Simulated scan of single mutants.
Amino acid sequence: MKKAALLLTLLLAGCGIPAQDEPHAVTLPRGDLNTATAGPAPGGEVAEVLCLVRDGRLVQAVRRVSSVPTTQRQLDDLTAGPTAAERGLGLSTSLSGTTLSVRNSNKSDGVTVEVAEAGARSDEVLAYAQIVCTLTARADVASVSFTRDGDPLRVPRADGSLTDQPLRGWDYRGLITS
C-alpha cells in the first residue's frame, strides 16, 4: 500500500504543472474558433437566442434566422418583442418602446449599450437582464456595459444592487428559468 501511495505521489508531482500557493486568474481565448461573425449562415440557418419574460423570469427563446445577426440586429429583435407564436407560449418583454444602440467596447469581448430614454420602470431589473442575457448568449460577447449620453449608467443586478461595471449573465442567474 505504501508503494502505491508513493507511486501516486510521484505521478502527481511529475505532471509538469508546478505547485502554486494561491489560485490565479486564467484568461480564456475568444478567438476565431468560438466567435461568430455576422453574415450568411454557412448551412442556411443559425440559432438566435433572445431572453424573453414569462411570469417575472427570463426564458431563452431560440429563433432560426438565415444569417448570423450583428449584436445590433439581435438587440433590435429583442426590443421588437416576442413573435405571435412566442406570445402564445406566454412570453413577453420588458423592453417595449425602448431605444437601444450597441457598440463594441474597447475590450474585444465586451459591448456597450447606449440607453436613450430615462423613464422609471417597475420591471427595470428584468429589462437589463434581458439585454445582458441575450447579448452574452453570443460566443463573441462576454460582458455588457451601459451608457446614457455617453456616460456610464448604473443599472440594477438581480439582487437590486446598482453597478456601472460590465455585467455578465450570471449577474442575473436568479431570474433565469432553468
Rank of each mutant, 00 (worst) to 15 (best):
residue 1 M to Q: 11
residue 2 K to V: 09
residue 4 A to R: 14
residue 5 A to G: 00
residue 6 L to H: 05
residue 7 L to V: 12
residue 7 L to W: 07
residue 8 L to E: 13
residue 12 L to H: 02
residue 13 A to T: 12
residue 14 G to C: 14
residue 16 G to L: 11
residue 16 G to W: 09
residue 17 I to N: 02
residue 20 Q to G: 11
residue 20 Q to V: 15
residue 22 E to L: 15
residue 22 E to Y: 15
residue 23 P to E: 11
residue 24 H to Q: 14
residue 24 H to C: 15
residue 25 A to V: 15
residue 27 T to L: 09
residue 28 L to C: 10
residue 29 P to M: 12
residue 29 P to V: 13
residue 30 R to W: 09
residue 31 G to P: 01
residue 31 G to D: 14
residue 31 G to W: 05
residue 33 L to A: 14
residue 33 L to H: 10
residue 37 T to P: 00
residue 41 A to N: 00
residue 41 A to W: 00
residue 41 A to P: 00
residue 42 P to A: 01
residue 42 P to I: 00
residue 46 V to F: 01
residue 51 C to I: 00
residue 51 C to D: 01
residue 52 L to E: 03
residue 52 L to R: 04
residue 52 L to F: 04
residue 56 G to I: 02
residue 56 G to V: 03
residue 57 R to C: 03
residue 58 L to F: 02
residue 60 Q to D: 07
residue 61 A to C: 08
residue 61 A to E: 10
residue 61 A to V: 04
residue 64 R to L: 14
residue 65 V to E: 05
residue 65 V to C: 06
residue 66 S to P: 08
residue 66 S to C: 11
residue 67 S to R: 15
residue 68 V to K: 01
residue 70 T to R: 07
residue 75 L to K: 05
residue 76 D to W: 02
residue 78 L to H: 03
residue 80 A to M: 06
residue 81 G to A: 04
residue 81 G to M: 03
residue 81 G to R: 05
residue 82 P to L: 03
residue 85 A to Q: 09
residue 87 R to H: 05
residue 88 G to E: 10
residue 91 L to W: 02
residue 93 T to Y: 01
residue 94 S to M: 06
residue 96 S to G: 08
residue 97 G to M: 02
residue 97 G to S: 05
residue 98 T to V: 14
residue 100 L to N: 07
residue 101 S to G: 07
residue 102 V to H: 03
residue 103 R to V: 15
residue 103 R to F: 04
residue 103 R to K: 13
residue 103 R to C: 08
residue 105 S to L: 07
residue 105 S to I: 10
residue 108 S to A: 15
residue 108 S to C: 08
residue 108 S to K: 13
residue 108 S to D: 14
residue 109 D to H: 15
residue 116 A to R: 12
residue 117 E to P: 00
residue 118 A to L: 09
residue 121 R to M: 12
residue 121 R to P: 00
residue 123 D to N: 15
residue 124 E to H: 11
residue 125 V to P: 11
residue 127 A to I: 07
residue 127 A to D: 09
residue 128 Y to C: 10
residue 129 A to R: 13
residue 133 C to K: 10
residue 133 C to E: 12
residue 134 T to S: 15
residue 135 L to P: 00
residue 135 L to G: 05
residue 136 T to V: 13
residue 139 A to S: 15
residue 143 S to M: 06
residue 144 V to W: 02
residue 146 F to S: 11
residue 147 T to S: 14
residue 147 T to V: 14
residue 147 T to Q: 13
residue 149 D to P: 04
residue 152 P to I: 11
residue 153 L to Q: 10
residue 156 P to G: 07
residue 156 P to H: 06
residue 157 R to E: 04
residue 159 D to L: 09
residue 163 T to L: 05
residue 164 D to V: 08
residue 164 D to I: 08
residue 166 P to N: 09
residue 167 L to N: 03
residue 169 G to I: 02
residue 172 Y to D: 06
residue 175 L to K: 09
residue 176 I to R: 08
residue 177 T to N: 13
residue 177 T to K: 12
